[in-house]
């Protein structure tokens, strides 16, 4: 869905650019314009206050530093941005937070692969209880992240049920690498249901005659999957990838609740929270990190808008 498309589907005729609109606007029409605008005013005011103004202030803060001697904020130029990457005492963990956030994004492709396999199994086996499995697999997606993180933390304890059932002796929660593995594991599992449902819907949309035609040409199941199904459901893949990455870049509860601040799993948003809210005295630094995160997410979103029709199959 694209914004211009959204507008164009209005069913109204677009005014032809060549015909100049010299028609006189009636009083009644002007009244409708006004009322129509009043109806959209609350969301616009909300946007201006809670988004536009907030973004501007975040941007301004990112160039400010708090001077503890004078007790006022002062302009520090790009110092906060530079400190994020270079300052050992002010921002020791920002680089780590970026690496952690990106590594933890691995759960996105994993959940997509699991979802694709599950959807394929449901289709291939013509499973009767398909709806049952869909409802069940989607349960974690509607559950509270805090509740899930509390129980997954319990599961991954050294003497916990995960190690016991698999006969392992891994210290999941304290290691720098193992905690990432644990988070990727649980997040892949929690997100695979959504991926499965979307892939299944995508597969049902593939025209049947394509399969029939290719069977006549002697293509096997595997060949059909890779040369028909997979390319035709690429919009779903793209959608899952983008929404997964955008969500993953804003991950917070995993670092806060599941990892309880373990530096092996601190994320960018956790870093922002720590510097700006928890410590409450590094708001300039936190704002600089927020601006970088916002830019990153905007780039991903714009990629979605710009390239979605080039990369993926559409009718």
């Amino acid at each position: 869905m694209y914004p211009d498309e959204l507008v164009r589907t209005a069913g109204e005729e677009l005014p032809s650019p060549r015909v100049p609109k010299k028609k006189k606007v009636s009083v009644q029409e002007r009244k409708e314009h006004l009322i129509a605008f009043l109806f959209i005013l609350p969301p616009i005011v909300g946007f201006l206050i809670f988004t536009a103004l907030s973004v501007v202030f975040t941007f301004v803060y990112s160039f400010q530093g708090y001077n503890s001697l004078s007790g006022i904020s002062e302009n520090v130029g790009f110092a906060n941005y530079i400190d994020l990457f270079t300052h050992v005492t002010r921002a020791p963990l920002f680089g780590k937070a970026i690496v952690n956030t990106i590594v933890l994004l691995l759960s996105v492709p994993f959940s997509m692969i699991l979802g694709l396999i599950l959807a394929g199994l449901l289709r291939l086996g013509e499973i009767k209880g398909s709806k049952f499995f869909q409802v069940l697999y989607y349960v974690p997606a509607v559950s509270s992240a805090v509740a899930l993180n509390i129980v997954w933390n319990y599961i991954f304890r050294s003497n916990g049920v995960f190690n016991t059932l698999l006969g392992l002796d891994v210290i999941w929660l304290d290691g720098d690498v193992t905690i990432k593995v644990a988070i990727i594991f649980k997040n892949s599992l929690n997100a695979m249901g959504g991926a499965m449902i979307l892939y299944l819907a995508g597969m049902l949309n593939v025209p049947k005659d394509l399969y029939e035609a290719s069977s006549l040409d002697g293509a096997g199941k595997v060949r059909q999957f890779f040369s028909i199904t997979l390319p035709l459901i690429s919009p779903v893949t793209f959608y899952l990838l983008i929404t997964g990455v955008i969500g993953g870049l804003q991950s917070y509860a995993d670092a806060q609740v599941f990892a309880a601040g373990n530096t092996g799993a601190t994320t960018i948003v956790y870093f922002i929270w720590q510097q700006g809210i928890q410590g409450n005295n590094n708001q300039g630094l936190a704002s600089a990190a927020s601006v970088l995160l916002a830019v990153l997410i905007m780039i991903v979103t714009l990629i979605q808008f710009k390239f979605s029709n080039k990369w993926v199959y559409e009718e």
């Binding site: 959204l6 946007f47 202030f57 948003v269 809210i277 995160l293």
Partner: peptide
């Protein structure tokens, strides 16, 4: 119409973390 719709929509790509501190 298009302008206002895009205007509102643009807010969807701003992460909450970038709005949180001023708020």
């Amino acid at each position: 119409k298009t302008f206002w719709l895009l205007f509102l929509m643009s807010g969807m790509m701003v992460p909450y973390a970038a709005l949180m501190l001023p708020q």
